[in-house]
Design a protein around this nucleic acid. Sequence first.
DNA 1: AGTACCACCTGACGGC
DNA 2: TGCCGTCAGGTGGTAC
Length: 260
Amino acid sequence: MPELPDVETLKRYVDATSLHRRVQHLHVFDTSLLEDVSRQKLVAALVGAPFDRTTRHGKYLGVHSSGGSWLLLHFGMTGDLSAQNRDRELPEFTALEIDFADGLRLAYTNARRLGTIAVAADFDAFVADRKLGPDALGIGLAAFRDVLAGHHGALKPLLMNQQVIAGLGNEYVDETLYQAGLRPDRPVDELSDSEVKRLHRTLARILKTAIDRHADPESFPSGWLQRRRSAGRSCPRCAGEIVKSRVGGRATYWCPACQS
DNA sequence: AGTACCACCTGACGGC
DNA sequence: TGCCGTCAGGTGGTAC
């Protein structure tokens, strides 16, 4: 599921494959993903110039055209990118195809069609307009404290709220709370200072490790929850049982013995 | 402000 | 074999 580490990995993929090539054609196959932009406007904004840089905030990827516009992509839960030569068959579920003048093609695929394709003149303004919280990657302890301050209620829904902190989804929140030893339904305003520090430190380490490993769960350390995200599996730490419950309306996997 | 629920969408999977 | 219901996920909306 594209959460922050996945989107960061896609950003690096675009950097490595798709910059500095002139966009020659653009095909929109799924207009339901277009947000506040017509097919015509998307073409006008992007065709004719190369992409020259990328950025990311939370789960949004920004790809900048040297023509001046930002292409904004959100991946929902099944969004992906693949770059290949244009003589290859178009990937299944391609929603947006970008053809470069040199024969390369970048395809944005999205099987379940939850996601966003948008255009903006200013990336920061787009982020502000969405009211996204600070990016979860590299957030400092002070800023992290600020994010939690003044909130009540359960920890998990707060960390998943993109307007509080941007980039975390169901799986990485479960992972972070598991490794930090905190219950998902723990009231935020009840955390001690050392628990906040531990949560912050754990989050930073998990995101960095996941990105280093290209967000591929199979290459994550064996002690991670994501390697055994199903009820009844044994906890890697205590050999107790991983349970599944519902917190904030979302399926939640955690270890009652390790998380308090 | 927090919570609870629904809708969007479709592939995967379990039950019968 | 195949039908059918349920779930998964991120987000945005609404109602309480």
